[in-house]
Design a binder for these strands. Structure first.
Length: 835
RNA sequence: GCCGCCGUGGCGGAAUGGAUUACGCGUGCGACUCAAAAUCGCAUGAGGGAAACCUCAUGUGGGUUCAACUCCCACCGGCGGCACCA
């Protein structure tokens, strides 16, 4: 019989769905049953956005990975939860709605249908009974409920802030969504805009988000990216008194620095344009007009402009006031410059041009003194007791930012910079001029978007009561129907135009009120969706608690690395909130994370519609079958590395499956003929290899081991057990063909039952004794070069090996009259004779 | 600029201190066939040699070691992330 993949694949996909073989067993969370049922394993994919283009061959790489792993763990006796859903709010759908006038809900439904069909084609064993969709009111009522929880916990607040605004998408963006000053979605230059916003206090969790990374089995790279994003830095806050013409008005400027050791080299201060002291002291500032003009100018710059002029540091001196350097009492000038950021540290810095490149560039431009206070260690010259003051006269070309020995620093001269850092800090602390401080780069999360297709924020603004949250019974607050989805561009969402919806009653005083018209960002629904798979939609959250705490946290999470600081950080944040609220028992959502490499088009570029290089899985599967497709995606290379799709590659997989098919074909039943010791050993070794490779995500080498096994079956007498084992090992990768062969040759009755499926057979075990080789090829080296090989017993002793080696003709020739200096023997591997 | 990762045949890759090139693709030759496809078998890093065999090859240069794709240093090239964060 011919191997016709599409025929058997359709058949088994239907059968598995009918019998529900891949459904997770919730009943096991009941303690009595848990004992019998084995341990749980929650394996999760980053759920896709249902786009109109559907899936290309790159998308399923992760889904196949989790599917292989889920199969493997199920066979090892774990109770598996492997669900799938749709992260469906977002701009592409909304933009399509604007173009066509079709409601986003309809577009979403259509896209989901299409993509679900594609996923099913691949034969992925999802528990579809738990499918979720973030745009379903029954789903987002929970998202809204969690928002209300955040509000009640004081973690959501309203603020009018200069935010990142994308003029093309006509919406505000989170800090994380701005890439090199451009919008993450459309690449338009982001500008600053003052807008009333909902903001989430993610910064409250800075420390926890940083520390708990240590608990996670995540790729070091992703952890490092989050660490950098959170950006903890330890230093000191130092008070600089301000000398003004008005002696009565005493004030000071606080700066944050990690380099207290360079304080003696501080020759001026720089304030961010937004620093409030400028307004406070405006009467004292002689050139306030020009200062104000500078501030206005820098406000109008786009992020992009600020970044593109990184090297050009410009500012303006504030005349009429001076700061006092606390270590030496020297009066120093104060500047305003937009290279100092208001939202980091104190919004003011002390400038040490000799030891900070940015300060150096600035000082050079404005001809400010450069005082050297750190000498690199390698300068071994004796330091005189009183170092003369060194003021730059253009001899410096670059700031020295490294560690060293202090000079020009009063009583700290000669001290190592690392130690001086602490000593100077402590000294000023005693004088009440400094204190230890920790700052984070992480900023609060701007949570509102001025668009239609997102979760409505369940808040009303009452003239009398102010901000009033909706009650649970008012949820879900559904999106109203609108005629036009166009963003207004005025900073209000299209919802603002729906008077009927906007005008409402205050839940508190029943007086007239207006609804919040901003919606939540794309990331809201995905912040908690791993919990959503466990919710019984008609029940309270608390009712689902046991289920949640049985299954969560997620044991293995697989997806793209592009979410390193967006989704993965936000989801961790919400988890910590829910934990603090006592609703869940885990502090981290994803214990183990593995990130995928992209599958690129054959031309090495990202697949995209605009490049016209998209390859669809549908066609590939139609031609070669889902099993060959799955095998190829796993075999292409290490799963975390980017790889080009190669049309030729899949041919080999199909050939391999044909070979497997032919091992069985034409036989009425599989009859053992003769046991083959060598083959039996190889089977055991293959079990070991495939098991270990799957455990370590080395799917490509697992498949190559199976190919080697099949190649060794060719033309040999094989026993029943060998063939059974082959199918059992191949099952996670090519689930359809193995089910077909299993049912046909190893199951008596034709009627299909779950427990007869190959996917419910225990994972094979190997005999450690048979994995060991009795005979090995001993490599004989002379001076580290291979000169001969001999077949010997694996446990051969050094003495014997040496005797044997030196008796070989080839070796004799090599060592002839030379003296043997030393012999290195690696048991079971090689012997190296050094002459 | 800073941080991280990666450079191995014609191609995807394997081997992370012990035989470089497993497995797959491609290519060549052979078998089967009237012929072709499919399939099966053999070969396939480069150079030299009639052959046994020899020499050289894991981005480049150096080092450690009996032994380096693997560890260390410098450089070159590519990819990803961050980017005025004091």
């Amino acid at each position: 019989m011919e191997y016709k993949p599409r025929k058997i694949e359709k058949k088994w996909q239907r059968m598995w769905e009918k019998t529900g073989i891949f459904k997770a067993r919730d009943s096991l969370f009941l303690p009595a049953k848990r004992k019998r049922g084995g341990l749980k394993f929650y394996i999760l994919d980053m759920f896709p956005y249902p786009s109109a283009q559907g899936l290309h061959v790159g998308h399923p790489r992760g889904y196949i990975t989790t599917d292989v792993f889920a199969h493997f763990m199920r066979r090892k006796g774990f109770n598996i939860l492997h669900p799938m859903g749709w992260d469906a709010f977002g701009l592409p759908t909304e933009n399509y709605a604007i173009k066509t006038g079709i409601h986003p809900e309809i577009i979403t439904k259509r896209n989901i249908k299409r993509m679900k069909k594609q996923l099913k084609l691949i034969g992925l064993g999802y528990d579809w009974s738990r499918e979720i969709n973030t745009t379903d009111p029954e789903y987002y009522k929970w998202t809204q409920q969690i928002f209300l929880l955040l509000y009640k916990m004081g973690l959501a607040y309203e603020a009018t802030l200069p935010i990142n605004w994308c003029p093309s998408c006509k919406t505000g963006l989170a800090n994380e969504e701005v890439i090199e000053g451009r919008c993450e979605r459309c690449g338009t230059e982001v500008i600053k805009k003052d807008l009333r916003q909902w903001v989430l206090k993610i910064t409250v969790f800075s420390d926890k988000l940083l520390k708990d990374l240590d608990l996670l089995d995540w790729p070091e790279k992703i952890k490092e990216m989050q660490r950098n994003w959170i950006g903890r830095s330890e230093g000191w806050e130092i008070k600089f008194k301000v000398a003004t013409t008005d002696k009565r008005q005493e004030t000071s400027i606080k700066v944050f620095t990690t380099r207290t050791d360079t304080l003696f080299g501080c020759t001026y201060l720089v304030l961010a344009p937004e620093h409030q002291i400028i307004q406070k002291l405006k009467d004292q500032i002689l050139n306030f007009k020009s200062v104000e003009r500078y501030i206005e100018k820098s406000k109008k710059k786009t992020e992009r402009e600020r970044i593109s002029k990184v090297k050009e540091k410009a500012g303006i001196e504030i005349k009429g006031i001076k700061a006092v350097n606390p270590v030496n009492g020297r009066a120093i000038p104060i500047f305003v410059a937009d290279y100092v950021l208001i939202h980091y540290g104190t919004g003011a810095i002390m400038a040490v041009p000799a030891h900070d490149q940015r300060d150096f560039d600035f000082a050079k431009k404005y001809n400010l003194p450069v005082i050297e206070v750190i000498k690199p260690y390698y300068v071994k010259e004796e330091l005189p007791k009183e170092t003369p003051l060194v003021i730059s006269d253009g001899r410096f070309e670059k700031a020295y930012e490294g560690e060293g020995i202090l000079i020009n620093s009063g009583r700290f001269i000669g001290m190592k910079s690392k130690i001086a850092r602490e000593r100077i800090g402590e000294w000023l602390t005693k004088k009440n001029l400094a204190k230890k401080a920790i700052y984070f780069k992480l900023r609060d999360w701007i949570f509102s978007r001025q668009r239609y297709w997102g979760e409505p924020i369940p808040i009303v603004h009452c003239q009398k009561c102010g901000i009033v949250p909706l009650g649970k019974k008012d949820l879900p607050l559904k999106l109203p129907r609108v005629k036009k989805y166009q963003p207004t561009g005025t900073g209000e969402s299209p919802l603002a135009a729906i008077k009927k919806w906007v005008n409402t009653k205050c839940p508190k005083c029943k007086g007239p009120a207006k609804r919040e018209t901003n919606t939540m960002p794309q990331w809201a629904g995905s912040c908690w969706y791993f919990i959503a798979y466990l919710l019984d939609k008609n029940k309270e959250f608390a009712w689902n608690k046991r289920k949640i705490n049985y299954w969560l946290p997620v044991d293995l999470y697989v997806g793209g690395a592009e979410h390193a600081v967006l989704h993965l950080l936000y989801a961790r944040f919400w988890t910590k909130v829910l934990y603090d609220a006592g609703l869940i028992k885990f502090k981290e959502p994803f214990l183990k994370l593995r990130t995928l490499g992209l599958i690129l088009a054959p031309d090495g570029q990202k697949m995209s519609k605009s490049r016209g290089n998209v390859i669809l899985p549908d066609k590939i599967i139609e031609e070669y079958g889902a099993d060959a497709f799955r095998l190829y995606e796993m075999f292409m290379g290490p799963f975390d590395e980017a790889i080009n799709w190669n049309v030729q590659g899949i041919v080999g997989m199909r050939r391999f499956l044909e070979k497997v098919w032919k091992l069985f074909d034409g036989q009425k039943s599989i009859v053992p003929i003769k046991e083959d010791k060598e083959l039996e050993k190889l089977v055991h070794k293959t079990i070991k290899k495939v098991t270990e490779d799957i455990e370590n995500f080395r799917f490509n080498t697992a498949i190559s081991a199976l190919m080697i096994l099949v190649n060794n079956f060719q033309g040999k007498n094989y026993g029943v057990w060998y063939l059974k084992t082959l199918l059992l090992l191949l099952a996670p990768f090519a689930p359809h063909i193995v089910e077909e062969l299993w049912q046909k040759y190893f199951v008596e009755k034709p009627e299909f039952k779950i427990n007869r499926s190959i996917h419910n057979q225990p994972w094979p075990k190997y005999d450690p004794k048979l994995v060991k080789e009795e005979m090995i090829t001993l490599v004989i080296q002379v001076n580290g070069k291979v000169r001969d090989k001999i077949e010997v017993k694996a446990d051969i002793s050094e003495k014997k090996a040496k005797k044997l080696a030196t008796s070989r003709e080839k070796i004799k020739k090599r060592i002839k009259d030379k003296k043997i200096k030393k012999v290195f023997f690696v048991p079971g591997k090689l012997i190296n004779i050094v002459v």
